[in-house]
Amino acid sequence: MLGLLAIFLPFQAYALCSVVSTSPAGFGSLSSIAVRTTSQPSSTTNAGLSCTGSLVSPLASDDHFYATITSATSGLVGPTSDVIGYTLFANNSTSHPITRGVAFDFARNSIIDDLGLLSNPVVAKTVPIYLETIIGSNVAAGVYSETLNIFWNWDYCYDRDGGGSCQGRDINSGSTSLTVNMTVANDCTITAPNISFGSAPVISAFATVTGQTINLVCTKGSAYTVGLDDGQHAVSVGGRRRMISGSNYLAYDIFKSAGTTRWGSVSTARRASSDAEVNPGNGLGTGSQVFNYNAKIYTDQSTPPPGTYLDSVVLDVGF
C-alpha cells in the first residue's frame, strides 16, 4: 500500500516596488488671463513608483520612500522663454508641498499607507503627484512644458514576524522623468462703456459724443485687431448703423479716434493693436491699451417720432 504525504508550506506575498515610466501631467488649454489670475490644478496618477504587496501593518518610522524632484528649469517654459511657476504636492489637499531638490518622504503622514500602495499582491499601484500653478504668471500664448527628473529611493520592511521584527527589507532606487505641459491661449478683458446721445427735440440738436474709450487688456505679446459690427438694424452690410424705437429708426455711427473714419468689423475698417492711442503695439498682459472713438447721429435724416432709440453693437477681438 502506497501512502501519500501532503505537506503544506505557508505562503506570503511580499511587497515589490520598482521605478517605471510616468504618466504625463497636463494642465490642458487655458487662457492667459486664467493662468495669471487663478490657481490651476493638475495631477499625474503615476509619478514613476509602482508597487505590489500584501503588507498587513502600516509602515514603521524606519521605513522610507523618498522622492527627489529636480529640473533644468524653474517651471513650465514657453516659446518666448516665459515661465509659469507651479507647486508640487504629495496629496490632493495641497497640505504636503514638495520642494524641488529636497527628498520628500512619502512614507510619512501615512501617504503610502493611505494609497494602499503595498496592500494588493495582484494589482500594481502607482504613486500620484499633484500640481498647482502659482498666481501671477504674465505670459505669452503658446505651448509650455517642463521635464522633471524624479529620483526614487526606498527602504522598507516587507516581512515582519509575529513579534514585529523585520525579516527582510526592500532597499532600492531609480530615476524616471515626468513631463508637465500646458497650452496658453490668447485672451482679453474688455471695458466698453455704453454710448448715450442724451435727448434732443430735433436731429440737428444732437451733439457728437467725444472722449469715448474702449480699454483692452490682452495676452502678453499678442498682435490683434478690434472690430465693431454694424449693430442690429443697419441699412445694409457696411452701411449706417441705426437705433430703433418701435418701427422708427435713428441713424448714427461710430468713428475711429476723433476722426471721421467709420469703425467697422471687416478688413481695414477694424483697428489694430498698434493703432491704440495708449500703449500701442502688442498686448501687455497686465496693462491696458486704450482706443479712442467718437459717435454721432447723422444730420441728413428726418427727425423721427419721439421715443427711446436703442441699438446693440458687438465688439470682437481677432488674434
Rank of each mutant, 00 (worst) to 15 (best):
M1E: 11
L5I: 14
L5R: 13
F8Y: 10
L9M: 13
V19K: 01
S29Q: 13
S29F: 03
S31K: 09
I33K: 08
I33V: 06
A34Y: 01
N46F: 01
G53P: 12
L55W: 00
L59I: 11
A60R: 14
I69N: 05
S71E: 09
S71K: 06
G78I: 07
P79D: 12
T80L: 12
S81I: 03
D82Y: 03
I84P: 02
T87G: 01
T87V: 13
F89Y: 15
A90S: 13
T94V: 05
I98K: 04
T99H: 07
R100T: 06
G101A: 09
F104L: 01
R108Y: 08
I112L: 04
L115V: 12
L118R: 08
V123W: 04
A124E: 05
A124R: 06
A124D: 07
V127K: 01
V127N: 09
L131M: 15
T133C: 07
I134G: 06
G136D: 10
N138I: 15
V139M: 04
A140D: 03
Y144C: 06
E146P: 02
E146T: 12
T147D: 11
W152S: 09
Y156W: 05
D161Y: 00
G164E: 06
Q167R: 10
Q167F: 00
D170A: 14
D170L: 09
I171F: 03
S177W: 04
L178G: 10
V180W: 02
M182T: 02
V184R: 00
A185K: 12
D187Q: 04
C188A: 15
T189V: 15
T191N: 14
A192T: 07
F197S: 12
F197T: 13
G198A: 07
G198F: 01
S199Q: 14
A207C: 02
V209H: 09
T219M: 04
G221S: 11
S222T: 14
S222K: 09
Y224R: 06
G227W: 04
L228E: 05
D229A: 08
G238A: 11
R241W: 05
S245H: 10
G246R: 09
Y249E: 12
L250R: 08
F255Q: 12
T260V: 15
T260L: 13
T260C: 04
A269P: 01
D275F: 04
E277S: 15
N279Y: 04
G281E: 07
G281C: 11
L284N: 15
G285Q: 05
T286H: 05
G287L: 12
N292I: 00
Y293N: 10
Y293I: 01
Y298W: 15
Y298P: 12
T308P: 03
D311W: 03
V317W: 11
